[in-house]
Design a protein around this nucleic acid. Sequence first.
DNA 1: GTCTATAAGGTGATAGAC
DNA 2: GTCTATCACCTTATAGAC
Lengths: 203, 203
Amino acid sequence: MAKIRERNRELIIRAASKVFAEQGFAAAKTVDIGELAGVPKANIYYYFKTKQNLYSSVLESVIEPLLAASDPFYEHDDPRVALTEYIRAKVKISQQQPYASKVFASEIMHGAPHLPPEIAEQMLQQTRQSSARIQDWIDRGLMAPVDPQHLLFTIWASTQTYADFDWQITRVTGKDQLEEEDYQAAADLICQLVLKGCEVKSP
Amino acid sequence: MAKIRERNRELIIRAASKVFAEQGFAAAKTVDIGELAGVPKANIYYYFKTKQNLYSSVLESVIEPLLAASDPFYEHDDPRVALTEYIRAKVKISQQQPYASKVFASEIMHGAPHLPPEIAEQMLQQTRQSSARIQDWIDRGLMAPVDPQHLLFTIWASTQTYADFDWQITRVTGKDQLEEEDYQAAADLICQLVLKGCEVKSP
DNA sequence: GTCTATAAGGTGATAGAC
DNA sequence: GTCTATCACCTTATAGAC
């Protein structure tokens, strides 16, 4: 039954996200993933054939939301609104998909050896379009002249850090885990730095 | 002879930094570290006893510069100068110690399982002091009221990203590797966002 | 101090019964 | 589709000659 197949794949991917995020690809043991998912190890190989395939599936599960986060750049002509929405979307991903975010970060940090080239290309294209959009706002005098690429790097880093380095952040804030208001405060500060820092105006 | 011992330890740690940074702890093979360092695998175990010990040594090699980067907070009373110097120091670490930076980032990302507790405590204390310093500037009307901790998170993230996610950054910028001017541009933009974004004034 | 050969242990992957 | 038993391989770590 196809239903069972889909459900089990989903269960395994969810468990794998957590284990890969916490241990890294090489240190992650398929037996642990199986235990967390509630299935014997052999079933993982039945569904995904190899550990690599499972890892790729986890990776792909975060790609779609990651790409969708850029939508605000094209939905809003007002840079103030677009940048605010973009930053909020990025923070939301860190909040809602912390494991997949970590897996993605780890993949990039090690040179993206398992990222399908077409996905890397797709993300690169999107970055070019986002940069061009920012440059357009600058040309129209709606923002101070900044390097669009470096601005994007800063936004990526400061929004993703709430997923990737949550250990550090929870230690400093003294909380067991981050709450809604923390993510809110994070997004607000990043928005403030970007909007004021780039002197963003409404058209 | 003690000289030989020191020299070999140094050679091995340097090689290990690179391999651990590129592969992660579990995926790194001691035989690869040995090859890169120009010594047979057995010598690594002779000098460091275990792979874990070697990893800890690499980790410790980056702690000192990391802690020293906060000095500007106490050397300058002017927040404009202090923050600028701090950001420059952080970017410089990404530039000059990219491998160690990655190893440290990876360690934090996985919950710092190998970071000695006293070092974690030391970094936490330093963060508290830096936060207090920022709060003091705010209280004296030299900066807009922002959450000092979140400001630090953003600075950490956006400066470290030039080491940790260099693959992504070189791809987007289209360069083989980042050059002096790129790090300069990065530091300048981050300074601009922080100084303007927080409305930092000189006393 | 250096290096080769080998031991010991663990993990990905599969065969085959149910 | 599920699961147990097992194989095959790889890597850490060490023993012992030089």
